[in-house]
Design a protein around this nucleic acid. Structure first.
Length: 111
DNA sequence: CGATTGACTTCTC
DNA sequence: CGAGAAGCCAATC
């Protein structure tokens, strides 16, 4: 069964291109995929297809730079994966977005 | 077909 | 900074 709509396709492509050591926000992915209000759809995609498509689900956090997962086990797993990629998380559980947030394409020339 | 439900976001207080 | 409410969207019931 193939990918149904364009939005989903874009999301998958974006998600797969998040480089190691960087993170993105749900709403951010949704926006680049064409639906600025589709953060929850991104969640659904991750939930449903992360395993099947080998998506870097752990590189997606909420807008604040915090792990959005509710499940305690999943949260620690994500924390571990991120840490393994060199992403630092402060003791309040927050990621420094200014430093780690992914920016698609060439908008990140200077920095 | 209306109600419920999220790994969301933004605004108020 | 924390808690609540409201907005948003698609899958599921």
């Amino acid at each position: 069964m193939a990918i149904e709509n364009e939005f989903t396709r874009h999301c998958l492509r974006l998600l797969k291109s998040i480089p190691k050591g960087k993170v993105a926000a749900y709403g951010q992915i949704a926006a680049y995929a064409g639906n600025p209000l589709g953060a929850r759809q991104v969640v659904r995609i991750l939930c449903a297809m992360s395993a099947k498509h080998d998506l870097p689900w752990h590189r997606v956090v909420n807008r604040e730079g915090r792990i959005a997962l509710k499940d305690a086990v999943g949260r620690s797993a994500q924390r571990r994966l991120l840490h393994k990629e060199g992403i630092k998380i402060d003791r309040t559980g927050k990621i420094d977005l200014g430093r780690y947030q992914w920016r698609p394409r060439r908008l990140r020339l200077n920095e």
